[in-house]
Amino acid sequence: MNVDELNKEQQEKIEAAVFRRLLKHLDERKDAQNIDLMNLAGFCRNCLSKWYAAEAKELGSEIEKESARERVYGMPYNEWKTLYQKEASAEQLASFEQNKPKD
């Protein structure tokens, strides 16, 4: 079957499952720091939580920022930071400054 042959319900189920798999993968890779993700891919866990809240709003549901973060991080954000976030190196910060999105 070609992806174009999926109906909207099938496509949304698959996309939801892929999102859950991405969150599981990120949860299993706590060594992948947000700054590394930003430097390599241009997005991080914080971006995902912002997108989550924005899409919920677009669909008519207001989700608090911290609640969206907890969904993405699998725990309260401050707890995740305390347990897993490492201090960014000068090299990481320089790369981030050079490549950060221009909003």
Rank of each mutant, 00 (worst) to 15 (best):
100 K>Q: 01
60 G>I: 11
6 L>Y: 01
3 V>K: 12
82 T>E: 13
27 D>Q: 12
24 K>L: 08
67 S>N: 14
103 D>L: 15
45 R>D: 06
78 N>K: 07
63 I>W: 01
83 L>H: 01
59 L>S: 06
42 G>T: 00
91 E>I: 01
89 S>K: 08
81 K>E: 12
81 K>V: 15
29 R>I: 14
5 E>D: 10
34 N>S: 12
4 D>S: 10
88 A>T: 04
41 A>I: 12
69 R>Y: 08
78 N>P: 03
74 G>W: 03
59 L>G: 04
62 E>F: 01
43 F>S: 01
22 L>S: 07
16 A>V: 15
11 Q>R: 08
68 A>V: 09
69 R>C: 15
12 E>P: 00
21 R>M: 13
54 A>I: 04
5 E>A: 05
40 L>W: 03
68 A>W: 03
102 K>E: 08
56 A>V: 06
71 R>Y: 10
23 L>P: 02
18 V>S: 13
23 L>G: 04
32 A>E: 12
70 E>S: 12
18 V>W: 06
59 L>E: 01
56 A>Y: 11
82 T>F: 09
86 K>F: 15
75 M>F: 08
102 K>H: 01
1 M>H: 08
42 G>C: 03
46 N>K: 04
71 R>K: 13
102 K>L: 15
20 R>E: 10
24 K>T: 12
56 A>S: 11
70 E>H: 07
77 Y>S: 05
64 E>S: 10
56 A>F: 07
6 L>V: 00
9 E>K: 05
26 L>Q: 05
96 F>G: 06
3 V>D: 05
40 L>C: 10
39 N>L: 13
60 G>Y: 09
43 F>N: 08
25 H>Q: 08
49 S>P: 02
68 A>P: 12
32 A>N: 15
89 S>C: 14
62 E>A: 11
65 K>W: 05
47 C>V: 01
16 A>P: 00
61 S>F: 07
59 L>I: 04
72 V>L: 01
63 I>R: 04
27 D>K: 02
82 T>Q: 14
29 R>V: 12
9 E>A: 11
103 D>R: 06
28 E>S: 07
58 E>V: 09
25 H>G: 14
57 K>G: 14
98 Q>R: 15
9 E>P: 06
34 N>D: 05
37 L>H: 03
20 R>Q: 10
98 Q>V: 08
14 I>W: 06
98 Q>A: 13
102 K>V: 07
69 R>M: 09
87 E>S: 06
5 E>V: 02
66 E>M: 14
17 A>H: 05
7 N>E: 06
96 F>S: 03
38 M>N: 00
22 L>Q: 09
63 I>F: 15
96 F>A: 04
86 K>P: 02
26 L>I: 12
66 E>F: 11
2 N>Y: 06
10 Q>T: 02
86 K>L: 15
87 E>L: 13
77 Y>K: 00
13 K>L: 02
36 D>L: 09
6 L>A: 11
62 E>L: 13
81 K>I: 14
60 G>P: 12
26 L>G: 02
50 K>L: 15
74 G>Q: 03
102 K>Y: 06
8 K>F: 10
42 G>H: 00
22 L>A: 07
81 K>A: 07
8 K>S: 04
98 Q>H: 15
49 S>L: 09
6 L>T: 00
45 R>S: 03
19 F>D: 08
50 K>S: 09
69 R>N: 12
11 Q>A: 07
74 G>T: 08
41 A>N: 02
7 N>I: 02
